[in-house]
Design a protein around this nucleic acid. Sequence first.
DNA 1: GATCTCATGTAAATTGTTACATGATTTG
DNA 2: CAAATCATGTAACAATTTACATGAGATC
Lengths: 177, 177
Amino acid sequence: MSLKHAILVLLDEEPSTGYDLMRKFKGSVGYFWNAKHQQVYLQLKKLNEDGLIHLAIQAQSGKPDKKIYSLSAPGKQALCNWLSTPIEPSKTNDAFLVKLYGGHLSSKEELLAELARHRATHTKTLDYLLGLEQSYRQLPAHQKDKYQYPYLTLRKGIIGEHAWLEWADEAKKEIKK
Amino acid sequence: MSLKHAILVLLDEEPSTGYDLMRKFKGSVGYFWNAKHQQVYLQLKKLNEDGLIHLAIQAQSGKPDKKIYSLSAPGKQALCNWLSTPIEPSKTNDAFLVKLYGGHLSSKEELLAELARHRATHTKTLDYLLGLEQSYRQLPAHQKDKYQYPYLTLRKGIIGEHAWLEWADEAKKEIKK
DNA sequence: GATCTCATGTAAATTGTTACATGATTTG
DNA sequence: CAAATCATGTAACAATTTACATGAGATC
């Protein structure tokens, strides 16, 4: 679907290896896009075959060759076409809420334990995103301009995680009640 | 993955047809689970073959027979097992944020137009969820207890949509700037 | 007369996950 | 010396989407 476009957007920002992209999916853009490495390497292969990205091989000793991909002219065109095509708001599938929905079949202890576990990962994600925000704020003005749009998506991540935690507090009280 | 469990949870609440389930996925539980009808009918078939749900056929004139599914004992067991197994926090893939991330390749007008479009659907969803909340609040006490957990997930939907709109206001200002 | 709701499916294509596979370098 | 990080992939399987398919009744 749009893993393809997520990769193109990231490569437009800077040439990267599959591994680089993976680090982004696990880190700085993980709050809005996720993928497994197998999927990424496969997609890069396809994008290269389709001529949407270029490949430069950089030999390394003791490690597999580094394969650095970058956006090609047709790739940029394809990306721009996609960007100017309206998309539907994304749908959420959240298994944790499915579990909560059927909460009467669990014990309160189990529910609270799982809520706490999830809370911990969301707190960690929020802290990480706040760190990224700090880095952004310390950037010189022209760099801030450059990253204006990525920063906007970062704000979405931060606001979203805040909301999650706000809800979690409410949910905790309500379950204990 | 857990469409299966989403269906089991909904059938635990009340026996339903595939069509009934679809209405829920498009409506009251759509903010945390989505599926296409083809997927639902397929899954119901499998769940029935595996003995996790029962099937009762109700003839109708002029329409296909209504196929009413309900949770079986092994189904309830399977559901309880799943409920007591920890799951990972869900990952989000949001194509709209991918588009925003590459916003410098679009025009401000296009970005604002798409933001407004998405804003409209989120506003609509929020209004719908607030309506559901009103219905819940007017329930007699024992009914409120029964729907305590579904209500908690509803709160997640409401808080999440609020957060989306809050972010959208910020984003709008920032894009215009 | 067109569109929406009711009500159900099959088949093909695409996408994503899990399992399997390798191997050097760095850090604790 | 164990674990994490770097760095890449194939193959099998599961899940999801898109396209195709039908047809009555209700509403505008």
